[in-house]
Design a protein around this nucleic acid. Structure first.
Lengths: 204, 204
DNA sequence: CCAATTACCAACTGATTGGTCGGTTTGTTT
DNA sequence: AAACAAACCGACCAATCAGTTGGTAATTGG
């Protein structure tokens, strides 16, 4: 119990710094030495706690990234009334953290998916699992919104979920350059317009 | 004149193979030797034609990528009537090439932007230039659509352009995994819905 | 207080990287 | 065919990478 405390602390410091650097510089472009330098730790310490660079990254994805995406994009939506407004709020919150140059983990996720696509199927598996959790939750929420009378019954929930995720990933890609504040505003404005279309009152 | 033919031919072979590998494996994860191996050429040949790896990549962006994006996403839209339908068609065409595992250069562009973000401002400049050409063309086309009576006058052209580009980039990111055919269908379906909202007849 | 385990250090290895360079082949000119 | 330049070869270099290893502090349990 007690003896594991130091171990856990060091591992978490490594994971936290690792995620930050992997996100900023990319996985392949970030060396283990980069991470260790920042922490004033040695190679030996790293390979004492982790088996390999890949093993290290997977532990980051499962421990850090999954929880963050879940608490940011899944939990706030789960089981709430008025799904469309809740979704808008969650996405806008994510974009706000991005605007303040903090880590927006939904975007971190899609960034890694882009980087590992076609290069490392093992890691891709873990990343796509997280993406899937998000997507399934969105679809379920939209379906519930239909039975609860918030969303037009003719709406294709899967298609809407796909469209929402797509546009979010895309706007985040654009936000890395250009004015994030303006982009966020424009994006949310159009997303609201789109949601008007699928809400209950707007019958097809 | 004549003497330059061989030079040009070799350079273009290198650029073409280079773009392919850089896209598949990423810039930092692709070595010059990878490219040369595929072409059965030597290091000497490469550095005879190009100053550096970076110089090589920039030449690819300016010569190959710019033209491809322009002919695929800008030219088909420029000055056409019925802008919304033309935009849908151009995007659907791009997604179709992607579905057949051919290079979709709009996505290639956004992929590189993701990879170089925060890492190489010099290269980013060239990539964002191309993105800008696309965006400006979209905005101009939408504006013209308003004066021509195809689009509702109250529509924010810049916001719509941002939203369209975002969703396109996003759906392409999702298409790398999952069923491309289904995703493309769902996406186009929702994009059409969204466009109904901003077209002339649907008054706010 | 001592022995065992945990946590860490730092020099090293072998492979790979971007880039250089002296030299050879191929093509053109006269 | 001599002279010259353009195009290309491949061995080499210094730097960097992931991973290994033999050792040493620090912590803990008996």
């Amino acid at each position: 119990m007690e003896k594991n405390l130091k171990r856990m602390a060091t591992m978490q410091r490594m994971q936290s710094t690792g995620l930050e650097l992997f996100y900023q510089q990319g996985y392949y472009n970030t060396s283990i030495d980069d991470i260790l330098k920042k922490l004033s730790l040695s190679k030996g310490a790293f390979y004492y706690h982790f088996q390999s660079k890949e093993d290290f990254f997977i532990s980051i994805v499962q421990n850090l990234l999954f929880q963050k995406v879940y608490s940011m994009l899944v939990e706030p939506i789960e089981g709430q009334e008025d799904p469309l407004n809740v979704i808008i709020t969650a996405i806008d919150d994510a974009l706000e953290t991005a605007e303040h140059n903090e880590l927006d983990y939904g975007f971190v996720l899609s960034n890694f998916i882009t980087e590992f696509n076609g290069k490392n199927p093992e890691i891709m598996k873990y990343l796509l699992d997280i993406m899937s959790v998000w997507e399934v939750n969105l679809i379920t929420t939209l379906q519930k919104g239909k039975t609860d009378g918030y969303i037009d019954r003719h709406v294709d929930s899967e298609a809407v979920a796909t469209y929402v995720i797509s546009s979010y990933i895309g706007i985040r890609t654009l936000m890395v350059e250009g004015n994030p504040r303006t982009l966020r505003y424009k994006y949310i404005q159009q997303l609201k317009n789109y949601f008007k279309l699928i809400s209950q009152k707007a019958v097809a």
